[in-house]
Amino acid sequence: MALKRLEAHHLIALQWLALPRRGGLTMAEIGEKAGVTRQALYDWIKDPLFERELKRQITRNTLDRIPEVTDAMIDAAVQDRNAAAAKLVLGLNGMLTEQFEVITADATALDRADLERKLAEYRARKDGAKTEE
């Protein structure tokens, strides 16, 4: 059954599950801290509401490390001449974008007489191919 809302025991579990390597705890230990079984934790992880909140908590936990990650990417791009890291750094700074140009033909550009002429040419080629057989 899907969770409708998160309660205190869910939030306790979320705090631990969002830590790197679960804060050094096993699933059973986290379950004990939250007052639930290990199996309940595994069931919650599959729940859309719990999963969404877990991702949010992980994001909140890692926001302060983003400058370090960016710094490491810049070092990799410059020192190691890593093109993938350079692309990521440029993309993060809005200096590189994926751009696709789509050109569509205007179907109304051909007039009826032109279409009839092309159709007649096609039929003539088709008829000529049949007589050669």
Rank of each mutant, 00 (worst) to 15 (best):
T108L: 04
E68P: 00
R52Y: 08
E7L: 12
E32C: 01
R5G: 02
L41D: 05
A2R: 14
L92S: 13
A40L: 09
G35T: 02
A34D: 02
L14H: 04
E53I: 10
N61R: 14
A84N: 12
A2D: 07
Q39V: 09
M95S: 09
T62Y: 08
L17Q: 05
R112D: 12
E98C: 07
P48I: 08
R52V: 10
R38E: 14
R117N: 06
E132H: 11
T131L: 13
Q79H: 12
I58V: 15
D64H: 14
A105G: 05
N61Q: 10
R52F: 06
L63E: 12
A77M: 04
E121V: 12
A28L: 14
I74V: 12
R22S: 10
R21Y: 08
L41K: 04
G31H: 01
M27Y: 13
N82R: 01
L96G: 01
L41W: 03
D64G: 02
K46Y: 02
G91I: 01
V89D: 00
K4L: 12
L3E: 09
A2T: 08
N93L: 14
E132P: 07
A77L: 03
L115S: 11
Q57G: 02
N82M: 02
P48Q: 03
E29F: 03
R52K: 15
E101P: 00
L19W: 00
E98Q: 12
E101A: 01
T59G: 05
D111Q: 09
A85R: 01
A8C: 02
I58R: 15
I66E: 03
R21C: 11
E53A: 12
K33M: 09
R81S: 11
A18C: 07
R5S: 13
R117I: 08
N82C: 11
A107S: 09
H10D: 07
K46D: 14
D80Y: 04
T108G: 10
D111K: 07
R123N: 08
T70Q: 03
L25D: 06
L90G: 05
I58G: 02
E98V: 12
A83D: 13
D64R: 13
R65N: 04
E98F: 10
A77N: 02
H10A: 07
K4E: 14
